[in-house]
Amino acid sequence: MKKRSICYVLILLSVLLTACSAGKKDSGSVRYDYSSTGESTGMSADNGKGSDVGYTNSVDTTAAEEPKNAASGEMDNQSTSNNSDTNRKRIRKIDLSLETLEFDKTQKVITEQIQKSGGYVESSSIYGSKAEDRDSRSAQYVLRIPADQADSFVEIMGNKMNLIHKEESSKDVTLDYIDTESKIKALKVEQERLLVLLEKATKLEDIITLEDRMSTVRYQLEQNASTLRTYDNLVEYATITLNIEEVLRISPPESRSNGDRMKTGFTNSLLNMRDGFVEVVIWFVVNLPYIVFWGIIIGLSVFISIKVYYKKDKKASPIQKVNSISNPKEEEKENK
């Protein structure tokens, strides 16, 4: 019994010793992990140095690689954003209100610039004629100019004429364009499958059904293809609307100071008075035949009415004389 108890004690001691040694190893490993973070310098000579060197090398390499990765990520993002911007489908519209002193020369300039830019006129309308007042003519042009030439065309129009108002809008149709393309691809696949089935079909009913579906698919293909062509035209060519008016003088730019505003207003008032007087003279000269005609008619009518009135007065005067002779008392009274 004593031998067994001694054996048990020895076994327990050995277990405790192994546990203690394991605990020391674990504490050493924990100390190694803790010291590897660089927060403690009290490491063992062998394990500490090796671990410290290996860890710091790994930290340095990752620290050096992170900026590179970040820079490459930014470059990738910029490149993708640039690609996405270039691949966007945008419909651009620009409206310009312009003034000109030389209407005929302006029309020639517009025609020349349209030909140089490679655009075309979608619609145009001109109001007034050269025989009328100088500032009565106006025109409206709806132009289709290539998108890459639109800005230069607008700049030239602003330099050749006086720009009063500019309005610009843009519509993004990228999603609609992609949806239409995907529909076309799906319809083409369906068309190919229908052709295969039509070759294999033997029953008349199946052939009729397949041909009906084929006609529907072809119609949808043509419709979607037409939509894509319309989008391409609207995206490749900007729509520029020009509203041009012929004026006697160019409108001055707006000023914010009160002195400039008073000066401009006073000058405009004088010019308006001058223009009004000129317009009155022009109106008088233009309508002079009507004035002479109606003046003659009115003068004759007045002359005739006066003449008729005097004739009536002369006819009435003898009766008054007879009455005066028949009443001598009244005549004496008149003499007195």
Rank of each mutant, 00 (worst) to 15 (best):
T86D: 10
S124I: 08
R249K: 02
Q113E: 12
G54Y: 15
A150S: 14
L98H: 06
A19D: 07
I296A: 08
R144V: 03
K3A: 09
V281Y: 11
K200I: 02
K93L: 12
V109H: 05
D232K: 11
L234E: 14
R137A: 04
M262F: 15
T216L: 13
L228V: 05
N82F: 12
V247E: 04
E279N: 15
S21A: 09
E330I: 06
T239I: 03
I291Y: 09
I297Y: 12
S21N: 14
L17H: 08
Y32G: 05
K130R: 12
L194H: 02
A45S: 07
T227F: 07
L300T: 03
L197H: 03
T267W: 05
T86N: 10
I240Q: 02
E167P: 03
N47Q: 11
S169H: 05
I207A: 01
Y141F: 15
S81F: 07
R193M: 08
K2Y: 13
N87L: 14
Q140F: 15
E122F: 13
E74G: 08
Y310A: 00
S317G: 02
G23P: 04
H165A: 12
S129K: 11
I282G: 04
L197F: 07
C7A: 13
K89P: 00
N323M: 08
V109L: 15
K183C: 02
L96S: 01
D133V: 04
T264K: 04
G295W: 00
D60T: 10
G295Q: 03
E39K: 10
I110Y: 00
E65L: 15
N224G: 00
I240F: 02
T174V: 04
E331M: 14
L271I: 10
N268I: 01
R274L: 15
L175R: 09
N327P: 08
V278E: 10
S125F: 03
T62C: 06
M262H: 05
E246W: 06
D260M: 10
V59D: 05
K333G: 00
L228S: 04
E330D: 12
E246C: 15
T202G: 00
C20F: 15
Y219L: 09
L16K: 07
F277L: 14
M214L: 15
K188A: 10
K188E: 15
G48N: 02
M214T: 10
Y237G: 01
L228E: 01
V142M: 12
D151P: 01
S84A: 13
T111S: 13
Y34R: 09
K333P: 00
M273Y: 13
K49Q: 05
I207L: 03
K130N: 12
S79L: 15
D33I: 14
K116S: 10
E334S: 05
D52K: 10
V247G: 00
E102P: 03
S21I: 13
V235G: 01
L228A: 01
K307H: 08
V154W: 05
I306H: 07
K200F: 00
F293R: 04
